[in-house]
Amino acid sequence: MCSTCGCSSTDSISYSGFNLESSSQHHHHHHGETEVIELEKNILSRNNEIADHNREHFRSLGTIAFNLVSSPGSGKTTLLEATLLSMGPQSSCYVIEGDQQTNRDAERIAKCQAPVVQINTGKACHLDASMIHRALHQMEMKPDGILFIENVGNLVCPALFDLGESKRVVIISVTEGDDKPIKYPEMFQSSDICLINKIDLLPYVPFSVDRFKEYARMVKPEMEFIELSALTGEGLGYWLDWIKTEEGVTV
């Protein structure tokens, strides 16, 4: 029995109960020599099961988990550094870093005194729920903490994979095109809040914040936005306030 979340194994979950249930619901019929199994099974069902398991683990600990998604280079790690330094070492913040290669991001986060686990996905372009589950087994989280999961920089693939997070946060930087929401709609549609980063560069780039918001609202009309610069700290307070509000919601 694993001490982290009470599941039966140290590196994967047993799904025997789930499999039995699903197979008993199948409708079988035979056509002479052939047999048809009517499955109607979600291809992502295994990921979603593990995501639910992670979510339950977070709920039991009172942890709030944020899945940070964006293109590469939007400033996710810089935002995390600024966030952790502002919140101080006594806040129970934890970080899971996802990258294809290297421990560079984890090393940066470690300097901010936060416990961090780096996942190297190798060739994979996204984090999935089982990777998070395995990372959680390496991390002893105290109750009522905040977990930041920095996904692999990619505006496409991570959209499909529920990690069990409480909220999904999409980050866009003003050096990207302001039409990103309609080019990568799944990511914006699946996110709960959108951070517009690097606003200190707005005078130098053709990015229109209004146009960007208009596109994002086409995809997700109820989208919330926070404009900030992780580098200069401008607007960071709004983000920290939002985190506090979300913490209040979970408690």
């Binding site: 052939t34 047999e35 048809v36 199994i37 009517e38 499955l39 109607e40 291809i43 609202r217």
Partner: peptide
């Protein structure tokens, strides 16, 4: 209106398997 809800088209399912002997 953009305030719409997708009701179909996001499916990713294994519908059925046909087995042989």
């Amino acid at each position: 209106e953009y305030f719409t809800e997708i009701v179909e088209g996001q499916e990713l399912r294994v519908k059925n398997l046909i087995l042989g002997t």
